[in-house]
Design a protein around this nucleic acid. Structure first.
Length: 680
DNA sequence: GCAAGGTC
């Protein structure tokens, strides 16, 4: 009797199918699917987990935040609880008469830990369990699975220990600092403020960028432009580019302003091969989807749906290199039966010799790719994401695009002006994957020695621009670059920042509370990517046997003890700063009745409303919509001078709302509208 | 009620 455990049910099902040559029976233990078959005269059971089925937490006696000073948690030993009772009891039944276990979880560090957690659990269920082996595979293809199960290796306990060190350190730092900051600022219950090794440095990136934007001072500059004409306008710039001082630009302008003709001195053409993009991993996929208007979380949930339906591959992967075992031709064949027959034919007759490959090559999963043509009608968003994944797949198999860049030098009364043009000679992959801005312009045919009529010469004043905010896609790419989070969690971390009201808006803007929280911990490693970098190094040492789990956790606890000693004297300052920030975030403007400030408050019943900070002297209140996100403004209604807030409902654009329910503007609209139908 | 990591 053999028992194999996989990381998830879908993997278990497909692996059982491959190992049994299609002769697999599926049944249930409770609600948990189990796949059984006979192989070489031996009965096999294969079961899928749900990732970690064991969770690390503090013992229940430490649940009361207000009763236990946070620093006391540092030395408390967390305990392991079974979080998937159903799977645990199914395993208990299966392992009863099984001496032989094969760990077939994903081929990465967390996969090793997920496997070892189960090994330890099953040893407690069946002390006779003595043969434990590991199957390692990078894709669920018949070749890889059969090879992995024919060449079983040992479980890597060091690698699992590396993962466990991360678990303990994350919990201890997270719980201690979350409780510290929440207790210090009296933000408890629903409104607690969280801190974590990944979320806080991510938030700090946003805060840092926001500060750069706010403190940015634009400096003016001038450019000298000349527009010529040949069939269509041609814009060119003086070779000097940006002039920091206006007089120099003006002097040159005065010299040439009356010129009528530009002489083409030189036309340089360069032919370039443009290589198609690499296969999608999670980060590049989210970025591409973000370009199509999907939030990171939305893109991932649709990719998950397509994966569960069997149309695309596993969406959580770091890999950008197709494994050799991936049967690309058979996928193309399947897709040609969908609405991509034209594209497939183009790849088959005019494709590149080898698919493109990215820099990251990992053992976890193949890059994201289509698996099959949809057997049912997809929703509009699913359709868009499915097409994106298919087209990216085609692009990685298509020939280079060929383009021609033209650099032109014009002479205008002895001054050099330059322009450049771009022309696509052969689109190839660009035509199969049309998701990019082609902002470069095409020039008419220009010849050296030719003279062109000048339409106008101008000095354009402009100013330097502040850095841009991170889009969700750009933030995920930055997180990946800094090793913050994983392919599976980066988008969830961003969602968490929204949920905790640390950020608002489609492109995440940090709130004043977020700024105060990051400022409070500015000297603490937990808001820096450095903590993750050092943890990674420690984990590598543990995996290589150079360091132990216990040593690493001990050092980390000592560091946290030191951090807490440094934070203790700062408490009053931190409390004041966060409370001021929270107030600022909830302040709307002056009360029209008494001049004090209006605040967003929550009633005893949990409804939000606007009340005056002068309460109980001033009892002025306004009602608020209970749904949607609120952003405070400093605007006053132009009709009645009442403060205005911005409301953003799901799926709609944000709009300004005057707090005054008797505002003449609202009245006027009602009169203009046809009389409303009577309501019951 | 805390983290981050799996997965649904």
């Amino acid at each position: 009797m053999k028992l194999a455990i996989c990381e998830k049910n879908i993997a278990a099902r497909r692996i059982a199918y491959i190992l049994s040559g299609g002769q697999v029976k599926s049944s249930h233990l409770g609600t948990i699917p189990v796949y059984s078959f006979i192989k070489n005269n031996e009965p096999w059971n294969v079961i899928g987990l749900k990732g970690h089925i064991i969770n690390l937490d503090y013992p229940s006696g430490f649940n009361q935040w207000t009763k236990i000073p946070p620093h006391e948690l540092i030395e408390v030993e967390p305990c392991k609880n079974v979080s998937e009772k159903g799977i645990a009891s199914a395993l208990k039944t299966l392992v009863k008469d099984t001496p032989s276990l094969i760990v077939a979880t994903d081929f990465d560090r967390e996969g090793e830990l997920i496997g070892v957690e189960v090994v330890n659990l099953l040893r407690s269920y069946n002390p006779a369990l003595n043969q434990i082996k590991r199957a390692r595979y990078s894709a669920i293809t018949p070749f890889e699975i059969n090879t992995a199960f024919d060449n079983l290796t040992e479980v890597d306990y060091n690698l699992a220990n590396a993962g466990e060190a991360r678990q303990v350190i994350d919990l201890v730092w997270g719980a201690v600092l979350t409780r510290f900051i929440s207790l210090t600022s009296h933000r408890l219950g629903r409104d607690f403020l969280s801190i974590g090794r990944v979320q806080s440095p991510t938030l700090a990136l946003l805060v840092e960028r926001e500060k750069e934007i706010k403190s940015f001072i634009p400096t003016p500059y001038w450019v000298l432009l000349a527009q010529m004409k040949k069939d269509k306008p041609i814009d060119s710039t003086h070779e000097h580019g940006v002039f920091r001082e206006e007089p120099l630009a003006q002097e040159l302008y005065d010299k040439i302003k009356d010129s009528k003709e530009a002489l083409i001195k030189e036309v340089k053409k360069i032919i370039t091969n443009e290589i198609p993009p690499a296969p999608f991993n999670t980060t590049t996929f989210i970025q591409a989807a973000s370009y199509l208007g999907f939030s990171a979380a939305k893109a991932m949930s649709i990719a998950e749906e397509l994966y569960m339906m069997g149309f695309t591959s596993y969406p959580r992967t770091d890999n950008t290199v197709y494994p050799p075992s991936l049967n690309i031709n058979s996928i193309l064949q399947k897709l040609s039966q969908a609405h991509f027959s034209k594209e497939v034919k183009e790849i088959q007759t005019n494709g590149r010799n080898y698919p493109t490959r990215g820099k990251q090559q990992t053992t976890d999963h193949p890059p994201i790719h289509p698996v099959d043509a949809p057997s049912k009608k997809l929703g509009a968003d699913q359709e868009k994401i499915y097409e994106l994944i298919c087209r990216r797949f085609f692009a990685t198999l298509a020939k280079d695009a060929i383009s021609e860049t033209t650099d032109v030098w014009f002479d205008i009364s002895g001054e050099k002006f330059i322009t450049s043009g771009y022309r696509l000679v052969e689109a190839n992959w660009k035509h199969l994957y049309p998701y990019f801005k082609e902002k470069k312009k095409q020039l008419p045919e220009l010849l050296e020695g030719e003279k062109l009529e000048i339409v106008k010469i101008t000095i354009k004043k402009d100013s330097t621009k502040p850095p841009q905010r991170y889009t969700q896609g750009a933030l995920i790419a930055k997180m990946e670059q800094l090793s913050l989070g994983t392919k599976s969690t980066r988008h969830e971390i961003i969602s968490k920042l929204y949920y905790r009201k640390y950020v608002m808006g489609g492109t995440p803007i940090p709130t004043s509370t977020a700024i105060a929280v990051v400022d409070a911990l500015v000297n603490c490693d937990v808001v820096k990517p450095k903590m993750t970098a050092e943890l990674e190094a420690d984990m590598n040492d543990i995996a290589e046997g150079k360091k132990t789990l216990e040593e690493t956790v001990r050092e980390s606890r000592l560091m946290l003890t030191k951090v807490m000693k440094e934070l203790e004297p700062e408490k009053e300052k931190i409390k004041e700063n966060i409370n001021n920030a929270v107030k600022a975030q909830n302040t709307i403007g002056p009360c029209p009745k008494c001049g004090k400030s209006l605040l967003v408050r929550v009633s005893k019943k949990g409804k939000r409303f606007v009340g005056c900070s002068g309460y109980p002297d001033c009892k002025n209140t306004y009602s608020l919509p209970q749904q949607g996100g609120l952003t405070m403004t400093t605007k006053l209604c132009d009709a009645c001078n009442t403060p205005v807030v911005q409301v953003k409902m799901k799926g709609r654009l944000a709009w300004d709302l005057c707090l005054n329910s008797d505002c003449p503007k609202k009245k006027k609209k009602e009169i203009e509208k046809p009389p409303a139908a009577p309501t019951a």
